[in-house]
């Protein structure tokens, strides 16, 4: 191991900056056992430090900006959009994104009549290959429990009040099947470039708990 104290700030992105990773205080027993397994597995050569570093970097490689590029492309290119809905894996590969080999991805389209929202009631399955790791709330018991029975009330907490005329479809992810929401393109965006459109696509709008931003940057409800 190149370090025995874990002060590997360099591998943590700027958005994660925080004073002093606390190692020796307030570590739970579980945390200590993880660190012990980490050191043992490398000592024994079961995995290499480089492999762990690579996996750690992979975890931070994707952010919601990646998913937003896919959505913006679908908004400006109807043929790409159709390919995305038909075979998401192949379509996102065109843009340089590779999905984890063991999880299929379906892109579900929001329209003026139908609104999709994604949950994983069993755990935390999420299209991380396009969005990065899920937010904490996505993994929370409250979100996992409530979304399948009261999605409108959940969305209301996120500031989205959907008309009763809009049908809500909740899609429940699994380890084998993940979902990304293709939000509806906001009105008044005809003059925007693909890049400008991508700025309107928030992480939460690709989970379906909100709509994308309006061209003025306000959440659309």
């Amino acid at each position: 191991m190149s370090e025995d104290h874990g002060h590997d700030h360099a591998e943590i992105g700027p958005e994660d900056e925080h004073p002093g990773l606390q190692w020796d205080v307030s570590l739970s027993e579980r945390a200590k056992r993880s660190l012990a397994m980490h050191e043992l597995l490398i000592e024994k050569g079961v995995v290499t430090n480089e492999e762990v570093e690579t996996a750690s970097n992979n975890l931070r490689r994707r952010t919601p900006a990646d998913g937003a590029k896919v959505v913006a492309k679908a908004w400006v290119d109807p043929e790409f959009k159709q390919r995305l809905l038909d075979d998401a894996r192949a379509a996102v590969y065109e843009l340089g994104y590779s999905l984890a080999h063991d999880a299929e991805l379906s892109v579900v389209e929001n329209t003026e009549d139908v609104h999709h929202v994604v949950v994983c009631t069993l755990c935390s399955c999420y299209p991380s290959s396009l969005l990065g790791p899920p937010p904490d709330w996505y993994k929370s018991f409250a979100y996992r429990q409530r979304t399948v029975i009261e999605p409108r009330s959940v969305m209301r907490e996120f500031g989205l009040e959907l008309s009763q005329d809009i049908q809500v479809r909740v899609v429940d992810s699994s380890a084998d099947q993940r979902y990304l929401v293709l939000p509806e393109r906001p009105a008044g965006t005809d003059g925007l470039t693909e890049e400008q459109l991508a700025d309107l696509v928030t992480r939460d709008s690709m989970i379906g708990v909100t709509n994308p931003l309006s061209p003025e940057g306000a959440p659309i409800s």
């Binding site: 980490h38 995995v47 975890l59 709330w137 409250a142 409530r146 996120f158």
Partner: peptide
Amino acid sequence: EMIDRSDHIWTDWEYKTHALVGAL
């Protein structure tokens, strides 16, 4: 329960735990 929308800052051991599973 309301949905707590705050995100905690990942600690090093959490990154390592996730990355270990990735390496394995």
